[in-house]
Structures are given as structure tokens and as C-alpha cells.
Design a binder for these strands. Structure first.
Lengths: 408, 408
DNA sequence: CTGGTTTCTTCGCAGTGCGAACGAAGTTTT
DNA sequence: AAAACTTCGTTCGCACTGCGAAGAAACCAG
């Protein structure tokens, strides 16, 4: 049951595919590397490496980029990954907006579009908005459909592994009957990958953020809702039912306020944006009559406003309870905090770390770094694109084949 | 970083090794299967399957076991896994005892030995006891060293992935400088695998217990300490520092008693054996002057003693807090409770499930079964042996080669 | 008993990676 | 400046693998 289920058989072609992917990943990772160096690291013979590199070059994924420094003999020819060989589309469906990015194969955003959109109750309108924005991105960069690897989608809902594309009927009841994957796949005739937004935030951090080089990471998204995603052994971990990472409904304070989910004292009722804003209204000299925004709390805290600081302190303390449990249970290498409020940095990290230290084993603490995200507001959409990239780097056949001559 | 690190290159021999392992696993799993059926399922050609099966047969791992039922033509020759081809040794180092089992390749215990042993403060004596018991098991079954695949060890300490064999200096300070793997490997000249006891309990459940057929499971060991182990995608998950699963020190009640670890209200201070016994002394009509044992609590609860029932209820409630957090964070398919106290079954499961229901998202709950272990008191030692089995089924070369003729 | 079906093996073929030999291109030594 | 050495990359024959077609063996149905 556990060993060989997923493993596929190998024939001669499969062997080539495996080694080919291995080399492709190495070249992607190293950005530039010589054939000789690849042969040394992979323990493949030089002749095999040359043959595979020729393959990859012919498919347009890599190219020669001049000579490297000599190690006492002939200078090596450096091979580089062609980040611009293909494009990827990443879509973030937030609570009240849709963001679409078009990235290259290095996670760089080449174009992006955002539109306000009530996602929760308007599947039809949301899909239409997504289609429009995707098309705009493609048109803006004059990217032909055939040079797009695929389309990644971040959804504000858990995604069940057995039916990617369908939203949770409990979180997004209005989406019953809709299948995002199906819908977009038929529209654009491209492979579509869907996952939860926090999971994709985690993937984004693992590839482009605080988790670079690591394989185990937990990302916590602090926003209207509180979600988290785990990267385990380099892969998004979804759990048995796709709801792994639902940190927002961990009961932190059994005497706390009731939550929409029916429980009491959920983390989200204490540190969700709504709770923070509410608390800010109580504490801060809310000049006018309007409730302050998260942005104002951030700015206030940075400016030294004691009320804002107090709110952030409280956030750190509550969050620490959940993070401590997380460290003991999962012992991730890194915990990354994302979401607008995380931009206060140490103002949040200090009370959080103190709170965790009071509640987690020192051994779990020792190995875990807790940091705030340095990626921008498009990190979720980029994470969606990264999901496609990850799949394609593992299975080269996902890259659309295009016969490339000698031209650049 | 995340994709190709672990992947190894493949050559012709590696291709054969992969396919060979795949077949070996299939035969192990199915117990009996024909070449034709293997070819259909794996999509390998009949000729290839025959060749590989001949290989496996020659190495003594499988054998023909007569004809199956016809599907309208020639009757298939069924191939069976030879569970008795090799033996595996499993060692459990508990808090106050050492248990050694000798199993076949199906996790069946052929011989076992147990001895009282203070493990915590006596590394030298513990290792000596282990050596003695292992040798006794080998002698009892007249098993030659060369037919033993390896030796698995369950340790009452987290094991850091980078130094398997070394105990945590915080949990077992007396073991500083000792390396269990090294020590036993040189004594017996066998491969040695070491892991945390709760992790191996989890593995045991996944292979032989409640988790059969699944790939994601969490095991919780209720004993002097409270530990847990996660099986993720069929593998033990150890976390970045090897301390994943330290559920015992999750803070459940911030107003609770202080714990040895320096924190307050740890789960273990509330539901560890010590706490249960202490509470029993308060509540139960402790006939004599001695403190009751866990066994007596179990028997009392079964017999209907209200005090014992109350203790179990409390256990279920506290444990529910931690399990709810676990479900939200990891969303495992199954949670298995082990340890002596778990033998009360529903008496514990009912209050536990109720407690969880009050604290976990219904979506997380829906996909998760919570059960008590049906494996016996040797499940941890068997889990240690299973770790070796798992490794060998993946890498056939771990099976000692022995030239087998046509004999049975 | 005959025709059809299924199982398993045999044998030649195509594809893959390897290794030795070689040429190409630098560096270091003389 | 020339020779000797080192490294890089390619070429080519070899060994091994899995495949597919063909065939033999074993069985069932009529």
C-alpha cells in the first residue's frame, strides 16, 4: 500500500525522462552549470549528459551561455536555463478581488491585472472576470497560447485531492456545481492546477521567499481569515480531505467569542482582520466615525502608536499559542507569516516568539525560524503559477513542444 | 531544491532495480498473484515480468504456489511472497524495559524477549540488555545472522534525521556520546535503523493495524509520556529537527500544573500515566495504601467504577483539545490511540470524539476516523522491525543475497 | 475432438547509459 | 615559445533493459 502505489514502471524512454528531468532541475536550480559539472554531481557519464543536454537545448528549455572559468584545462561551456522559454498564468481568487499574473519560468511577474470581484457568492461573475483578466495578460505580452505551460489557481477554500477544481460546499456554498478546473481548462485549452490560497502562499515562500533551499515550511496567512499551508518534502501537503492547515479554527481561548464555524474561541475570531479592526476601533483614537483599516493599524504601529502596538502584541500572543502547537506537532524548519498585517515585522515577531517560547518545547523551537514574508501582495498568485512550474519541472512533457532552431 | 534533490539517476541496472522493487511490492501486497495479472496492472510486458519474477525467485523472495483459477484459458501460475525468506529484529527501548522481537517479512512475531531495564540513566546496561535479548532471539529460532535483514530500534527520544542513533541530549542526557546505531551495527554486523517510539507505533498501525491500506495516519501513544507519530504519504514524518509529533507538550490548560519541560499545562501533566494514577488515588477507593496502576483504572472503568470512568472522561476531554488542533492542522485520515489506557475503547473514544467535535472544523472531522489500537503490547517493537521491512521492500539489495536452488 | 482463449516463454530489435578513445581548448612547466 | 599536462566534450562500440511478435503450453466450451 505505501511503497509502490504511486511509483510507475520504467522503460527505456522512462529512464531518459527521469534523467532528463533531473538535469533540467539541476540546470534550473543552478542557473548556469557546465556539462562536466553536471556529470560529476549526477554521476552520469559525460556522454549521457551531453546527449540529454542536446535534447533539452533542442526543445528550447536550455541554451549555451558562453564559457566558464577553467579548472586547469579546457574551459567549460556553461549551460543556462531559458527562463523566458515559456510563460505561466497564476490566478488568485481572494475574498473580494481577483488577481492574475503572467510569469516566466523563474517566478518573475511579466504582467498582472487585478479587479474587484465578490468571489464568495458570484461564481459566474468570478469566472468571467478571471477569463477576462487572463486574456488581457496574454494580449498585453503578446504571448501565444502555445507558449503557455498552464494555469494555476489559488482558491479561498480547501480543495479536496480527489476533485481538484471543486470548492468546499461548507466554505463556498454558492459554488456548488462549479468546477474551476474544468471551466478554465476548456476555455483556454491549457492544463489547470487548483489549490488552496494558503497552500500556494506556502509554495511561493518555499520557492521565492524565506524558504528558498528548504523542503519543509509552514506559511500562515493573516487576513480576513487565518489559513496556513504546509510544504513537506518540497510538496504541498493537503491532508486526507484537503483541509490540512486550517489553523484559523484552532480553539485558542475556550472562553472566547463564538465563531461562524460554530465553535468558540477560534483563532480567527481573535486575530482575524475583523477582530483587529474592531479592537482598533475600541483602542485607537478613531478620528472620524469610520472603523480603521488594517493598513492604518500597521502604519500606527510603525509610527509608535501605543494602541496599535498593543493590538499587534495581542495578535502575537494569541498566534503564539497556535504556532507553539504547530511546532510541537510538525516541527517545520521555517514558519513564515504573510498577509498585510505581517508587514510590521519585528513588532509582531517579538511578542510572537515570546509567546511561542512559553509554550513550545525548546527542542522544537531550536530548529525553527519564524519570519515574516518579504514577498509582495502578488505572492499568492505567483504561488499558483509556481504550482504549474513545479509540475512541469518534474514532467517535462508539460512544456508544450515547439521545434526550435538555432535561433535565440 | 525541492524537486530533484533526492532523485537518483537511473541506468539500465537502476531501471531493473526500480521495476524489480515495484513487482516485489506488488507480490508482497497481494500475497499471491499471477505473472499475467502483474503485467496487466503494471503495464509491463509479459516477457519483462517473467524475467523479473525469475530473478526474484532465484533470490528466494518469491516462489510459485500452484495454479489459480482460469479466466477462460490456461490457468495462471500464482506467485507468492516468501514471508519466511528472511527475518527482522525489532527492538523497543521503553522507559523501564527493553523488548526484542524477531519477525518474519509479514510482521509476525516468531520469538520475543522482554527484560526490565532502566533505560533513561543506564545506556551501558541498556545496550548490554539489548545485545543479550537479540542474541537470545536469534538462538531460539536458530536464525543464522545471514538471513536477518536488519535491526530496527525504537527509542524513547526524538531522533534527529542527520544523526540517527543519537538520542536527544535534552530528553536523555545520560546517553550523550552514545550512538545506538553504531553500537548495534558493529556488534551484529547488520544494518540498523533507529526512530522514535511513537513514530514506529504509527508505522506499525499503518502496516498492520487500523491504517492498513492508507498512507496518512497519526498515532498517539498514551503512556508515561504522551507522544505521537505521523505517517505522511506512507513515510514516517520526522520534521526538520526530528521532533515532529511531540504532542505531549502542547499547552492545553494555561492554568495547569508546571511540567518538567519548564512549561505549564502540558498535555502530559494532565493525562500522562502519572497524572491519571494520581487522580485515581484521589478519586478511587484505593483499598490499601498503594497508588492504583493504570491497569486497575482500565479494569475499574470496564467494571463500571464511576471514579475510573470519570478519569477516562477527563482524559478524553483533555486529549480532545490536542486532537482537534491536530485535525485542523494536519487533517489525517486516521487517528489511532495506543498505550495501555487505550484498551478501554469506546469508554475513551466517546468523550474524546465529543471533545473534538466541540473544537474541530466539521470538514476536518468528516474525513478522519478516530480509533483505538488493536495491536498488542509489542506493536512498537514490531514497528521497529517494520521500518527495516519498509526499507528493504524499497531497496531489494538490503535483502542479504543467498544463492537459493530449487529447494523450498 | 476442435477452435478459441489465456498464460508464459523465446528471440530479435530498439533505445539507453557506459566506458574507452579521441580531439579540442586551456594552463603550467620547461 | 614549445612541450607536457589537465580538463572538457564528443564519438563509437558494447552491454543491458524492456518491448513486441511469434509460438508453445495449458485450459475451456461446444
Amino acid at each position: 500500500m505505501k511503497v509502490g502505489t504511486a511509483a510507475l514502471t520504467v522503460d527505456a524512454a522512462g529512464m531518459r525522462a527521469q534523467n532528463s528531468s533531473l538535469l533540467l532541475n539541476m540546470i534550473w536550480r543552478e542557473r548556469q552549470i557546465s556539462r562536466a559539472e553536471i556529470a560529476r554531481r549526477t554521476e552520469l557519464s559525460p556522454s549521457t549528459v551531453s546527449a540529454i543536454v542536446a535534447d533539452l537545448e533542442h526543445s528550447g528549455l536550455v541554451r549555451s551561455i558562453g564559457a566558464g572559468v577553467s579548472r586547469g584545462g579546457r574551459r567549460p561551456t556553461l549551460i543556462g536555463f531559458r527562463d523566458d522559454a515559456f510563460s505561466i498564468i497564476g490566478v488568485e481568487m481572494g475574498a473580494t478581488h481577483v488577481t492574475v499574473v503572467l510569469t516566466d519560468l523563474r517566478g518573475r511577474v511579466r504582467t498582472h491585472r487585478t479587479a474587484s470581484q465578490q468571489v464568495r457568492n458570484d461564481p459566474e461573475g468570478t469566472l468571467k472576470t478571471v477569463r477576462t483578466l487572463v486574456q488581457e495578460c496574454l494580449d498585453a505580452e503578446r504571448v501565444p497560447r502555445r507558449s503557455v505551460v498552464g494555469l494555476g489557481v489559488a482558491a479561498p477554500s480547501p480543495v479536496h485531492p480527489s476533485s481538484p477544481g471543486k470548492m468546499s460546499p461548507l466554505i463556498l456554498p454558492a459554488w456548488r456545481g462549479y468546477d474551476v478546473r474544468e471551466a478554465l481548462s476548456t476555455t483556454f485549452d491549457l492544463p489547470v492546477f487548483v489549490d488552496n490560497d494558503a497552500n500556494l502562499g506556502a509554495l511561493s515562500e518555499c520557492y521565492w521567499g524565506a524558504g528558498i533551499g528548504g523542503e519543509d515550511l509552514t506559511y500562515i496567512k493573516l487576513a480576513t481569515g487565518i489559513g496556513s499551508g504546509h510544504i513537506i518534502h518540497g510538496d504541498v501537503y493537503r491532508g486526507a480531505g484537503g483541509t490540512a492547515g486550517e489553523i484559523g479554527h484552532i480553539a485558542v481561548d475556550s472562553a472566547g467569542p463564538p465563531c461562524l464555524c460554530g465553535l468558540r474561541g477560534c483563532l480567527v475570531t481573535l486575530i482575524g482582520s475583523g477582530a483587529l479592526v474592531e479592537r482598533a476601533r475600541e483602542l485607537m483614537g478613531t478620528k472620524g466615525r469610520k472603523a480603521p483599516t488594517v493598513r492604518e493599524i500597521v502604519e500606527g504601529a510603525r509610527a509608535g502608536d501605543p494602541a496599535a502596538r498593543q493590538i499587534i502584541d495581542g495578535l502575537g500572543q494569541y498566534l503564539g499559542v497556535a504556532v507553539a502547537g504547530l511546532l510541537n506537532l510538525l516541527n517545520p524548519a521555517i514558519v513564515v507569516l504573510g498577509g498585510e498585517i505581517s508587514s510590521v515585522g519585528d513588532l509582531l515577531l517579538d511578542p510572537l516568539r515570546a509567546s511561542v517560547r512559553k509554550r513550545a518545547l525548546s527542542t522544537s523551537m531550536a530548529e525553527t525560524r519564524i519570519v515574516t514574508s518579504a514577498l509582495g501582495d502578488k505572492s499568492i498568485a505567483v504561488g499558483a503559477a509556481t504550482l504549474v512550474l513545479q509540475a512541469a519541472l518534474r514532467d517535462r512533457t508539460l512544456f508544450p513542444l515547439q521545434h526550435v532552431g538555432k535561433s535565440a
